[in-house]
Simulated assay, not measured.
Amino acid sequence: MTLRLKLKHCKFTVFTLGEGEADEFHGHEDVYQVSIQLEGISIMQHEKTQRHTGCPESRMLLSPGQRHRHLAGDGEARILLITIKQNFLKNVIADRLGVPETEVCFVPWGRDSSTKVLVQQVEQLFLRSLCHPLSRMESDEFEWKLVSFLLSIHKGTHSNDWVPTAPPPIEHPSLRKGIEYLHANLSSPITLDDLCKITGISKYHLIRSFQRHVGSTPGRYLRNLRLHTAAQLLRNRNHSITSIAFETGFHSLSAFERAFKSKFGVTPSEYRNMFSV
């Protein structure tokens, strides 16, 4: 069974591959495409790189001209495709940053809890469209919000200008103090006890407050902050990879490389080469 929903600039498709089945190895010239595993286990191939995807936090993002395919493993595999027109994504970036339209190339792999948010947004869109046809305004708003969210969570050539370096706006005063402390002490070893002293909040309530207001635990927030900062520094060749590892709070180069590859799907050196001129 295949589900499809087409808006002006985006298309959403949910399809199923039978056990051992695969689609053709192909590419798209004028669209970006996100692939997300919904059920089962499959192998996703991006050019010459393959990955087993059974984790609900994983996603593959295809830039125009790049080839890919999906291969089902044992049992059926259910996959969501989000297709975005190239010109529309350029328009969103130009509008947000106030710059002329530019080409964007994404890193191919992403893995974080934001993938689940993408899926939830698309599921809600399908449900809304079943109840009543979307108005032009509703459709436009959804597409802009979805693409803006994708640009915020998935790394690419736009990220140096797009990702904010300041702490996110948090109304909770004690929690804001803790987040500012994390940003200011990124290279230092930070414990949950440290944050409790800074915020005056118990560990239990600190973790619950982070999850409620920020969407993650303190540890995961700090880890993502360190990795995003490292990614920004990697685009500047004045910093060695080893110095970046310690500057962003990793106790060893090997620990940094493992964490970076787990987050972005490529090693720090591979990531740096993607942005070399």
Rank of each mutant, 00 (worst) to 15 (best):
K85I: 07
V117T: 15
R69I: 00
H9R: 08
A72M: 10
P167F: 05
T165E: 14
K177N: 08
S159R: 06
S113C: 08
S174A: 14
G54K: 13
S129R: 15
S209E: 07
V147A: 08
R136Y: 04
A166Q: 10
S174M: 09
R235Q: 14
R258N: 05
L192N: 02
V107W: 00
V31P: 05
S135F: 02
Y181L: 11
R208P: 00
Y204L: 13
L118H: 03
R176L: 07
G249D: 04
K11V: 03
R4D: 05
E103L: 12
W109I: 07
S135C: 05
L61P: 02
H132R: 15
E180F: 12
I153L: 04
A259W: 05
E57T: 14
A255D: 08
S240R: 12
Q86D: 10
L225M: 06
E141P: 00
G98S: 05
R223W: 00
L61C: 06
L62R: 07
F142E: 05
M44N: 04
G18W: 05
F250I: 04
R67T: 03
P108V: 06
W109K: 08
N236Y: 11
F88R: 07
L150E: 09
S152A: 13
Q33A: 09
E138Y: 06
T13A: 09
E270S: 06
S129W: 14
L192P: 04
G215V: 08
K145H: 12
E76Y: 12
H205R: 13
A259M: 08
R128S: 06
S113D: 00
I201Y: 05
H228A: 07
H132F: 12
F15R: 12
K85E: 11
M1P: 14
R67L: 02
F12G: 01
R69M: 03
T13H: 11
I43P: 00
A231G: 03
D95M: 12
G18P: 02
P56T: 11
A255N: 12
S174W: 10
E141L: 11
R69H: 13
P167G: 08
Y181E: 01
T16L: 15
I79S: 08
Q86A: 12
N160P: 00
F250A: 04
P268D: 04
E103H: 12
G249L: 09
T102S: 14
L146S: 01
V99H: 02
I198Y: 06
T229W: 02
L234N: 04
T165Y: 10
K85T: 04
A94F: 03
L134E: 02
N87P: 01
T2A: 13
N185F: 10
F106N: 01
P133H: 13
F88C: 09
C105Q: 13
P189G: 02
M274H: 11
A230K: 03
I198A: 04
R51E: 00
N87L: 15
A184R: 15
L151A: 03
Y204A: 10
G20Q: 00
R235K: 14
W144K: 15
S159N: 02
T49V: 13
A230D: 02
L17S: 06
T83K: 10
R4W: 11
F260G: 01
P167T: 06
F126L: 08
G200S: 05
R258W: 01
E247D: 13
T217M: 09
